[in-house]
Amino acid sequence: MTNTYKVTVLNMGHVDIESSLMKRGWNCGQMMTIPQPCVAVEGNGLKILLDTSYRSLAWIDEYCGAVNNGKDEDDGSLVTAMAKIGWKPEDVDYVVNTHLHYDHCGQNNVFKGLKTKFIITRTEWEFAQHPTPNLVYCYYPHLFNIESANPDQIVLIDGEYELADGIICFPTPGHTKGHQSVLVNTEEGVVCYAGDAANLTANLHENVIGNIIYDTASSIRSLEEIRRRSEFVICGHEPSLKNFQSGGFARTHEG
C-alpha cells in the first residue's frame, strides 16, 4: 500500500502582479493579487517543505525594485508559519525547490547547516547560474548558494525522482528550464504541487500557459504531464488558496 501524507498550504504573503503574466493574454494591463505559498507535507515519519516563498518584502524592495502592494501574512516568516503547524526548522528532512526564482527559494536560508536536504533539478541549478536575459531578474544566487545552504545539503536530481513512497518529483519545464512539480499521495487522492508550471488552476483547466517563460512548447506539455498524474492541484500563485488549507484542493481535471 502506498503511504499517504497530510498537505498544508503555508502562505507567506501577497503581492500584486500584471494578470497576463499569470495567464497569457488574459486581462492585459490589469493588476491582480496573488499569494506566495509554500506547502508543508507530513507523514511516513517525514517532514517535507515544497518551496520557501520570498525572503521578505524589504528584500524584494532592495533587489527587485519596489514591491507591488506587498502584504505579509503574519510576519512573513517561514519559521512563524511552521510553528503554527508544530514544526521547527530542524525537523525538516527535505526542502524541494520547484525552481530557483526568488519567490520560491527565498527562505532556504532558514535550513542552512541543519539536516535538511534541498532537492533541486540539476538543470535548474545550472540554469540559475546563467539564466536567459528575460529571466535574470528572477534569480539571485545568494538565495540558494553557500550563503543560504551548505554544499552538502544540495541534492541535484535528473528526471523523475521518487523522494519517498508516495512522493514523486517530476520535470515540468517551461516556466524555467529546470522546473519540477511534486506529487503527494493523500487520503483523498494524489495532489500535485505544480509550482509555477501552473500559476493558476485556470492554466490547467483552459490549457493556457503563463507568460513568465523559458519555453512555450514544453510549458504546454508540462500541463499535460500534471493532468496525467494527479487528481488535485495546488498552483503556485492561485488566489483562491487559503493559508493553512489542508484539504479540498482544486481538481486538476475540470468538471
Binding site: T2, G166, N185, V190, R227
Partner: peptide, 10 residues
Amino acid sequence: FGWSAVRYTS
C-alpha cells in the same frame, strides 16, 4: 490506466 483508475504514486 490513467489517474482515475490508478493513483500515479502506486
